[in-house]
Design a protein around this nucleic acid. Structure first.
Length: 172
DNA sequence: GATGTCGACGTGG
DNA sequence: CCACGTCGACATC
């Protein structure tokens, strides 16, 4: 049978003043966002077909949302997010993250509490690290309870930067 | 107070 | 089995 083009994922660049992010789209929506990689090969996707209209539409929304998020504002309307790659537990965590408003933070234990698994604090950290759409799913707003910064898959400098943009004063 | 150890939890290697 | 983007409880100085 024909290659199921519906399952194909598209990787499209989002140029920003902070570098070129890469957005990934599945047939169901935005499924990934990557931070700019320092030594970026900016190869135009020469042989790659132009994405379907639906994807281009999502991409336009994502670009605008990311721009706003990078200035510390609420992202506004988002394209549909395809978080199906995550386990049920992870999706619960990510849902909570999306409820944290810009300029506010939670601790890993508070998030654990919010999903009704008070003791799964550490697992929450793991779920945050597995977040496929950083920035728009604000895993950076989760700090350690002891006022520490915690970690960040994309690099702690990004976490610091994003928090600073939202006017959050970092502990020590 | 400042350290050190330990148990609890989900996931991937 | 182990290591994580953790935390709080306890032990010991």
């Amino acid at each position: 049978m024909k290659t199921n083009s519906a399952a194909r994922t598209y990787r499209l660049p989002i140029p920003t003043s902070d570098g070129e992010f890469i957005a990934c789209y599945s047939g169901h929506g935005l499924c990934g966002l990557k931070f700019p990689s320092g030594a970026m090969g900016r190869k135009r996707a020469a042989g790659v077909a132009r994405p379907p209209a639906q994807v281009r539409e999502w991409h336009a929304a994502a670009r605008q949302a990311l721009k706003r998020a990078l200035t510390g504002q609420a992202p506004g309307s988002l394209p549909p997010l395809d978080l199906s790659s995550g386990t049920e537990f992870q999706q619960c965590v990510w849902r909570v993250l999306r409820g944290i408003t810009p300029g506010r933070t939670r601790s890993y234990s508070e998030v654990a509490q919010a999903i009704g698994r008070t003791e799964a604090v550490r697992a929450v950290g793991g779920a945050c690290g597995a977040n496929p759409i950083p920035v728009l799913v604000p895993c950076h707003r989760v700090l350690a309870a002891n006022q520490g910064l915690g970690g960040f898959s994309g690099g702690l400098k990004w976490k610091r930067l994003l928090l600073a943009r939202e006017g959050i004063e970092l502990p020590s």
